[in-house]
Structure formats: C-alpha cells, structure tokens
Write a protein that binds this DNA or RNA. Structure first.
Lengths: 124, 124
DNA sequence: GCCTATAGTGCCCAAATGGATACTATTGGA
DNA sequence: TCCAATAGTATCCATTTGGGCACTATAGGC
C-alpha cells in the first residue's frame, strides 16, 4: 500500500519504503525472486496458502511500483517470468534485515512459549 | 497489521517482521524512538500531519506487540513516555535499511522527475 | 470560570485490503 | 472431445485501516 503523501519529516524514507513493500505476500515474493526469475506457478508453489488472485494482485502491484519486471514469452502454455528490477535488487539489505529479525523474533517467541509451557504443567 | 497465520515457507520471517511494523506511521515512530524515550506530544510534533487518534492507535499497537514500552508518571499534566523495548531496539538494522533504501529511491525518483521535466518544456 | 498543559477516548465513515468462487484463453496430447 | 499445462480475470464480500470530529480527565494560573 503506497502511503498517501504526507509531510516529509526525517523518518519518512522509512515509511516510503514500507509503503512499497508492505502488502501481504509482497515481502516473501521479493524474497523468493532474489534467487532469480520465477514463473507464476513456481512462485505459487513456494507460497503455500496464497490464492491465484492474491499472487496476481501483489505481482501487479510490485510491477507497478517498478520493483519487479514481468516478461511474457510467446508460448503455449503461457509462460511469464517475473524478476526483480534493479530497484528491486537494491532492496536486498532490507529483505535480509527483515528476515534476520523475523527469525530471531520467532526463535525468541518459541523460547518464551516453551518456558511458559514448562512453568504451567498440563491440567487435563 | 499482524498477518493472519499462514504456512511457514522459507521467506515467512520477512512477512512476520513486516506484519509487525507495517501500519502507517509505525515505521517513522520506531525511527524516532531510536533517539531515546519520547513523550506523546514530542512524537506528535516530530510527525507532521499525524492526528492524535492515529498516534495513539499506532503506539498502542506497537506496545501490544512488545516493540515499545509505555511509562506513565504520576504527574499532572499527564506525563507518559514511550521507549523502544529490547525487541524494538533490535529492529535497528531493519529501520536503518528501510531508511537507506527510501532515501536512495527518493533521490532516484527526483532525478527521473528532473530529467523528465528537462525533456518536456512547459507548454503553458 | 476559563484557559492551558498533557494524553488521551468514542463514534462514525470512506477507502483499502485480503480473499472466495467461478470462469477464461491458448495449445497439444490422448 | 476432453484433459492438462500455463497464467490469469471478474465479481462479490467481510474485515481492516486511516482518519475526521467531538469530547474527556487532572491540576494550576489568571
């Protein structure tokens, strides 16, 4: 979701970036495209739970924002490849940082959950 | 907006992190709190265009997700301080990366806009 | 009493988001 | 003809998001 324009104060580049990558599935789409160009179906297989509808929608949005490119090949069955644009490639440090934090946060949450389970024996 | 649970595939930590920081104003709030604890009014002054309503709402959400803490002092007028939690502090590399990318993207966009303006003289 | 400072809360609403469901188009093979 | 592969599109809907607007509470000063 691109944020509606608002006065630019010191932190607003943060919001600018977030506004381009924050729709559900966008982050993980960008993550997978870092490995190289992928087709629609391959992306779908890598993203359990996503609907065609949502994949199409988010890919179109990312393309609109010039973060990815879409190449249509004159073939049947249809063949369309999606790849990071140069701008999208430059997002690598962002995606890496998001992934690293998410992993550590997940691990910390699991440690907490385990500690809570150990402190409260089952009542059943 | 915390993303609804979905099957965890390799990239999902990216989505996990984004889900915690992607509401409008959250990124820039976190950015400002990196300087140290701030009060509601000070935050508001640093964020031109934000309403009380939105500031309160996003602060509450960030607190709910344990990214920030809220300290109430027994004073009149009311004094409440918001600060990054340890978890919130660990988001620094994320915020920095988002900011860096946003700045370079903004600069690139301005260069493009300038080039377009130079190529298309005013018609009026 | 009124105003100021501070930090909110309640209610309402338009727009955006995420998604379910059904359907579409082109070939080639059985 | 039917089915498979591929990559969508159209329509509808429930929920969420961002925000406008009005009001609240506690003291202290004029």
């Amino acid at each position: 979701m691109k944020r509606s324009q608002f006065d630019c104060a010191p932190g607003c580049p943060v919001e600018l970036t977030l506004g381009l990558i924050d729709g559900k599935w966008k982050g993980v789409i960008l993550y997978h495209l870092q490995d190289g160009p992928l087709r629609f179906g391959e992306l779908r297989r890598r993203l359990p739970g996503i609907t065609q509808r949502m994949l199409t929608k988010q890919l179109r949005a990312l393309e609109q924002d010039a973060l990815i490119s879409r190449a249509v090949f004159a073939e049947v069955p249809p063949r369309v490849e999606y790849a990071l644009s140069p701008s999208g490639h430059s997002l690598r440090p962002v995606i890496d940082a998001l992934k690293a934090w998410g992993e550590s946060h997940r691990d910390a949450s699991q440690r907490e959950a385990r500690a809570a389970a150990a402190a409260a024996p089952a009542i059943s």
